[in-house]
Nucleic acid binder design. Structure first.
Ligand code: ZN
Ligand code: ZN
Length: 478
DNA sequence: TAGGTCGGACGCTCAACGTT
DNA sequence: ACGTTGAGCGTCCGACCTAT
């Protein structure tokens, strides 16, 4: 128990947007949580390629570690009655020790530590070193806490960000909440962040990464298999019984067997009404009813933090169906979104060519429809070859210019053109090279200076000065 | 069989562009 | 001023694995 850690809670909670958005930092009442003396978790040195960070940002210091070597750290003197949420108020302790970080006051100088409120997870990273680690602090009275856990999450430059979404990280300099739900957005406070530790998902240890090898940054993992440890708290939060689930949602039984299978709920605005067989898909009517196409997927504007981390379907309700199912209601809050950067020059736009000039290319679509043009896409765009049976039927608008203009042909566009290179090529082969076996990805085909991949996931923010990262999975945080 | 991970496909939004 | 383009960035499908 380290009193000092308690004292620092308040000041360390602003792990994330502290400097840029002070106002968003919510000072939550700190609870008396007693933490074991933080110890720098250095015993498991492992290294990861500096450059080759795993996609998905596994290494970001979402949850790093800080914990006693034996994992038995103490007690949460004030555990909430809610079995599913140990404490939504526990403060995240965060410290960092990297060059760019802000002051590292506190606990172990060498690490960034944080306490996951709802799980009691204490995490920290040692950005400067190669020994990030994560520990779960067991809370005796807690039904869901496990014990020491090593987290492969390593940290990159931005270790200062606690439980932050990769995409958000790259923009820490302009941290702002999404224009989307500003009023709903909550600062990444402990309660909110804690949610970022997805109880139902133990620390992310992707198998492949661990056992592997070159591709894995976690080659030097501790001898103890993470998976083994995970099992201890596998369901950190046991799924809520269906009955309860049903009650919660006020819907009848059978429909509740699983959130996935029965996404519909009156409280959830997401239109599930015409739900096809696929449980998690939401569909929209296609422009062409005759076309046998893959229905368009609908997304919620803002997934909750839990779903976001799990990369699972969320809905508009709060708590969302999924969180309800897993007893994560308390941490089901909207995830934050960054504000799109402005002032980015894009270069000249291509002009679409009228259908008539496209030859046989079928371009039936509405000319004015700029987005999600189905089948054939807008004029001047060619949809993927039919040969791509597996390929998404959504037309990935592959801009191809009929005119022999100098316009860049071949953006390796993906959705909406995410991966194209705006105007330059910088030596990169911009030509469009279809690779339809599965789905092509401009990113995979061409490496960009930014390691661009798809729109949002990897290196999306590429054009920014972001250092960072790569993907959008919150994994490690569990 | 259920649930966790996570690569990457796909969708949405909106500022930059272009045109009127 | 308004329509279009397409990049930024988010969601979440679905394959793969492990645990039960
Ligand atoms: Zn959700
Ligand atoms: Zn939720």
């Amino acid at each position: 128990m380290n009193n000092s850690s308690q004292q620092q809670l308040p000041q360390q909670q602003d792990y994330q947007q502290q400097q840029h958005q002070p106002s968003l930092v919510k000072q939550e009442p700190q609870e008396s949580i007693q933490l074991a003396t933080p110890q720098s978790y250095q015993q498991q040195p492992f290294q990861y390629p500096h450059q080759a960070q795993p996609s998905h940002n596994h290494g970001q210091s979402y949850t790093g570690l800080q914990g006693s070597s034996n994992g038995n750290i103490n007690s949460f003197s004030a555990l909430p009655s809610n079995p599913y949420n140990i404490s939504s108020h526990l403060m995240g302790l965060s410290m960092q020790n990297n060059a760019s970080s802000t002051s590292a006051s506190g606990l172990n100088s060498s690490s960034l530590a944080s306490v996951s409120s709802n799980t009691g997870l204490i995490s920290g990273t040692n950005s400067g070193s190669t020994t990030p680690a994560l520990a779960y602090v067991s809370a005796p009275s807690s039904p869901i806490l496990g014990n020491l856990q090593y987290n492969p999450s390593y940290n990159q430059n931005n270790s200062s960000l606690y439980h932050q979404h990769p995409h958000q990280q790259h923009q820490q300099h302009s941290n702002q909440y999404s224009y989307h739900n500003q009023q709903q957005h909550q600062p990444m406070t402990s309660s909110n962040l804690s949610s970022s530790f997805y109880p139902a998902s133990p620390p992310h240890q992707h198998q492949q990464q661990q056992q592997q090898t070159s591709s894995t940054p976690f080659t030097g993992m501790p001898s103890t298999p993470l998976r083994q440890q995970q099992s201890q708290y596998a369901p950190l939060v046991p799924p809520m019984p269906d009955a309860q689930y049903a009650q919660y949602h006020q819907i009848l039984g059978s429909a509740l067997s699983s959130a996935a299978s029965t996404p519909y709920h009156s409280n959830h605005s997401t239109p599930y009404s015409s739900m096809p067989t696929s449980p998690t898909l939401e569909y929209q009517q296609l422009a062409d009813p005759n076309a046998v196409q893959k229905p368009k997927r609908r997304q919620v504007k803002n997934a909750c933090v839990n779903c976001q981390k799990a990369c699972k379907k969320c809905d508009e309700g709060r708590p969302c169906m999924r969180c309800i199912k897993y007893g994560l209601q308390e941490t089901c809050v909207d995830s934050t979104r960054k504000v799109r950067k402005k002032g980015i020059k894009r270069g000249p736009y291509k002009r679409k060519v009228p259908p008539s000039q496209l030859g046989s290319a079928s371009a039936s679509a509405t000319p004015t429809l700029s987005h999600a043009v189905l089948n054939g896409g807008p004029t001047g765009y060619m949809s993927e070859p039919v040969t791509a049976l597996n390929s998404p039927t959504q037309s990935h608008m592959l801009p191809f210019t009929t005119s022999s203009s100098t316009m860049g042909i071949g953006y390796g566009a993906n959705s909406g053109s995410s991966n194209g290179y705006p105007f330059q090529t910088q030596g990169i082969d911009n030509s469009y090279v279809p690779s339809y076996t599965t789905s092509y990805s401009g990113a995979s085909l061409y490496s960009t200076p930014y390691g661009m991949n798809d729109g949002g996931n990897v290196g999306s923010s590429s054009s920014t000065n972001n250092t960072n990262n790569s993907n959008n999975h919150y994994s490690n945080l569990a």
